[in-house]
Nucleic acid binder design. Structure first.
Lengths: 349, 349
DNA sequence: ATAGTAAATGCGAACGTTCGCATAAGTTAA
DNA sequence: TTAACTTATGCGAACGTTCGCATTTACTAT
């Protein structure tokens, strides 16, 4: 490990003071072209790279964004994590920022972790994701007036910059898709009461149905945790409804429930896709491998990560958030056999 | 954002010099109990947190480990990423280290990225993963004598600290599993020639077969890229072999090939699990959702990440790598219906 | 008592920048 | 020619630590 090349060495070689070199490098000052050229040559020759640490000590900014996230359960990978991270730090790197990852802990200790990173000056801002109703971090960062941006929103009194997927719109798109396939009795596997995300999505469903002039039967809205088993059981319930209100299309709020639904449909001797159309949400990588492949709503995650970073850094550099402060992005419906019943031609992939 | 509490403020409150406070905090010196108590009280009262930046400027260490990885293809999530990252930074955090993530780029630019992080003093070491034969980073870091540790190994002249999954042993375990189920004709879907990882795994297969006194028929070793289509086609080929050498068990080197194999088995009117046993490698989250659920080899990824970090930090703090320098960890065989043919009782999950 | 040693604390310097003001040189207007 | 500006560069200080050595104080042994 060779020892560091410093400003002073560059300055000596270019016959100027080291402070001048600093200014030229940071484009803080206009200088005679000859001197400037000498400086850049010296930088080149010596292979000078500014010390990140010294720079950030002096300027009191770490050029680092902190991020932690809830680990996915061991039996179930988070399919968007990779893309989300890559989108964030590739966006960040372009502006000289990096992403610092730290462990996700239980509430009390998590706040300490945030506090430590803030107080030690290791990060300039945070990104939060999959935020919760009772997420203490939002409150905490807000109180501290520490910059952050979130993937996901919260209703209530907090105002903070976020980007979120417009779940309501997504469900509406899915419902319209089923409507366009001439389904009339369309049910939804929704989340328990008092879930903001869930309620918002239900609105999309109701709105699509109303626009099509269909009255939503109360039994069509089934609620439960977003698990396979719940999807399975709720679907059994739906399929045992009286003929005239029995759904021919089922919209699930995540893929896992949709998988459960398809299993239940099979269990009743019916064919998912052919007899009952099913759509999921998230477009997990599993979706395309299922039989039949699952129609699902995909989040434009790359875009989300990029916007999040760009706006956060914009704020750090300019002191104000660019518009829009709160942003909703439409998910994209990936149509497969589980809703159309039509086997895709060509390659399976 | 309140302004920072510094050593000097703590010192003033405790009526000692600020350098003494520094020493007490870093446990560099013994001091009178009264003074020590005064200092800790002052630290507590003022809520002092050392400035990471100042500390690392002075001590010339960033307490940061850099990591980048090849993004997974958009249609296929990396199932172990989350766990791997979490294991690394939770291990790192315990010793005051953090993980800095940066974008993965093409060869030439990637080296520049590494160089920049090194020269700017942003990181003290790197973790590498899924390293390649012609990976220029290994060479580069070796030349620079910059500390790093890898998940995965390389044969050749390079010696560096790594941890890897013992693929050969894994395949051997899988083969023994099939042998214990009375299979004799066992084929393997392997990787193209000249793949170190692939060759190593084939050795495990051959060794298990030999121990069981079975001669490996040349046709049983089929090679190709690890894709669904390749798995499908190679399996068709295997199933068209003469009765006496037709395999009843197929070991695939990854889950995707195994999925292709199961599809081919079905295509021939046979039942995977019942008629032909199949095993995969990686235990992707998909594996349990398949029909039938896929027996597969799981990498103990949490353990790997932890060991990697612990050893890297050990090196950074003590200047020498702990033993063993190179470490192989056995994968774990997760047995499901695709090999046993026995439908699991109880919950699907 | 007095030198000798050990323990406790202080002090100056350094890590490599950026920042703002001071100064020197060059240019224009009276 | 000289005052009044502009422009280019230099200089000292500061960011908040850690490090090694110097100093003070207290204690033991002669």
């Amino acid at each position: 490990m060779k020892s560091r090349v410093t400003l002073k060495q560059v300055a000596a070689r270019a016959s100027v003071s080291y402070q001048t070199v600093s200014k030229v490098i940071n484009q803080k000052v206009r200088i005679s072209p000859e001197a400037e050229q000498r400086i850049w040559e010296a930088v080149e020759d010596l292979g000078y790279t500014p010390s990140y640490t010294a720079r950030s000590l002096r300027s009191q900014r770490s050029q680092t964004i902190g991020y932690t996230w809830q680990p996915s359960p061991p039996d179930q990978a988070n399919p968007i994590l990779d893309l989300f991270l890559q989108s964030m730090f590739s966006s960040a790197e372009k502006k000289g920022y990096y992403l610092l990852c730290f462990p996700y802990l239980e509430q009390e200790k998590l706040l300490d972790a945030y506090r430590l990173l803030i107080d030690s000056g290791r990060v300039d801002a945070f990104v939060l994701s999959s935020i919760d109703y009772d997420d203490p971090c939002i409150q905490f960062l807000n109180d501290q007036k520490f910059p952050f941006a979130a993937f996901g929103r919260l209703d209530g009194n907090f105002h903070f910059p976020y980007i979120d997927v417009d779940g309501g719109l997504g469900i509406k798109i899915a419902a319209n898709h089923l409507l366009s396939l001439s389904h009339r009795n369309i049910a939804i596997l929704a989340w328990p009461h008092n879930s903001r995300v869930g309620d918002n999505r239900i609105e999309g469903y109701v709105s699509a149905m109303q626009s099509a002039g269909i009255e939503v039967h109360p039994e069509w809205v089934q609620r439960g945790e977003g698990t396979y088993n719940v999807g399975f059981n709720l679907t059994l319930k739906l399929l045992s409804l009286a003929e005239n209100i029995r759904p021919t299309g089922i919209i699930a709020m995540n893929d896992l429930m949709a998988i459960g639904a398809m299993a239940a449909i099979r269990h009743c001797g019916l064919m998912p896709g052919k007899d009952i159309a099913v759509t999921g949400f998230d477009d997990t990588p599993t979706a395309r491998f299922l039989r039949p492949p699952l129609t699902s709503l995909r989040q434009p995650i790359w875009e989300i990560g990029q916007h999040l970073m760009d706006r956060l850094i914009d704020y750090l550099e300019n002191g104000r958030y660019p518009e829009p402060f709160e942003e909703l992005i439409a998910p994209q419906l990936i149509i497969r056999e589980s809703s159309t019943g039509i086997e895709a031609k060509g390659e399976l992939f």
